Amino acid sequence: MRILVIGGTWFLGRAVVEDALRQGWAVTTFNRGRSGSDVPGVEPIHGDRTDGDDLARLASHGPWDAVIDTSAGELPPRAVLAGARALEPVTCQYVYISTASVYAGWPDEPLRVGDAVLDGPPDADEDYGRNPAGWLGPNLHYGRQKAGAERAVVTVFGPERSWILRPGVILGPGEYVGRLPWWLRRAVRGGRILAPGDPRKAIQPVDVRDVARFALGVAQRTGGGVHNVTAPIGRETMSDLLQLCLDTTGSDGQLEWVPDAVLLESGVTQWTELPLWRTHEGVWLIDASTAYEVGLTCRPLAQTVADTWAWLQSGGLPVPHPRAAAHGIAPEKEAAILATAARK
């Protein structure tokens, strides 16, 4: 296999590249050369995917059996559309890493492939679908942009040559958002640890290496398709995650579970201040059964936690990203909420 990975230097893109190289594939990467270093063994091409000349230069290095696009998260659909058009003559199929946020029902409803997707034209610019001022709901702008980017890929490659993968939460070594690293570091601090909501709440984060392996798997298949990419529904819980953080780090911290209502009354920002905590019904009810049917396997959460801790202990540092600053609750606020909960 000869593949092109757009991105390829950090987190998911790097996991894709490293796995492909282990399998003996020829890998070309395309990125700006600003975030992370190129993986030894690739053919690195540096350029801006929004620049037509750079795209033409990239296409001249083809052909490829597949393109795996891991870096379009902040790009408007029209940029993805232009890139797909430039690469279509020199690649057999396109694997696009999207998100569960494209669903109109996210995060309030259980989701499965075939459910309604947000609006988003394939040629939309970065302003399309922006949330109105003061909007407190889910980030519909992000979902609409990614939905438009999906349509851009399918517009160019057709459904028979497009693989659209929609992960939920991705964790594992190299994580740049800082969700699991925050919980691990919080476990190390010990003491009374604010544990959010119902300990029996099921969660379904997926390991970055499993997403990478699945993307490489579909890149070898023909026919195209759309798949959600998550761990099985109900396999693990929030209690499992936090206890694993304590056990893995050897912490003597004590988990103190505080009900959702108290957290909401205390103004805790869902999803970020206590990472992975969210009260919406559908957030951890994403059906990925179609992906399992074509080869997705998900390692136990215990392995993800242990390997992420080992990465941090070895001096691993994520590529800096602005989203990381939003994660984690201030110790003073945590202590105040625990004190309030104790009085109730």
Rank of each mutant, 00 (worst) to 15 (best):
M1N: 07
M1S: 15
I3C: 03
G7F: 01
F11Y: 05
V17M: 12
A20I: 07
V27H: 07
T28Q: 04
S35C: 10
S35P: 01
G36H: 04
V39Y: 03
P40S: 08
V42Q: 01
G47K: 07
D48L: 06
T50F: 02
D53Y: 07
A56F: 02
H61A: 15
A72V: 04
R78G: 08
R78L: 13
A84K: 06
R85P: 03
L87H: 04
V90T: 08
V90S: 05
Y94F: 15
T99V: 14
A104C: 09
A104S: 14
E109L: 15
P110Q: 04
L118G: 01
D119W: 03
G129P: 05
N131W: 03
L140S: 00
L140Q: 07
Q145S: 15
A147Q: 04
A152S: 09
V156H: 01
F157G: 04
G158E: 08
G158A: 14
P159M: 05
S162L: 10
I164K: 05
L165E: 00
R166E: 00
V169K: 08
L171E: 00
L180C: 03
R186V: 04
R189S: 14
L194V: 09
L194Q: 04
P205C: 11
V206A: 06
V206P: 00
V211N: 05
A215F: 01
T222S: 15
G225E: 09
I233Q: 15
L241A: 06
G253P: 03
Q254W: 05
L255M: 07
V258T: 13
L263T: 01
L264C: 09
E265Y: 08
L274C: 03
L276I: 12
W277F: 14
R278S: 08
V283R: 07
W284N: 12
L285Q: 15
I286M: 14
D287S: 13
S289A: 14
S289Q: 14
E293C: 07
G295I: 03
L296A: 12
L296G: 11
L296I: 12
C298Y: 00
A306S: 13
W309S: 06
A310N: 13
W311R: 05
G315S: 12
P318A: 13
P322A: 05
I329E: 00
E334D: 06
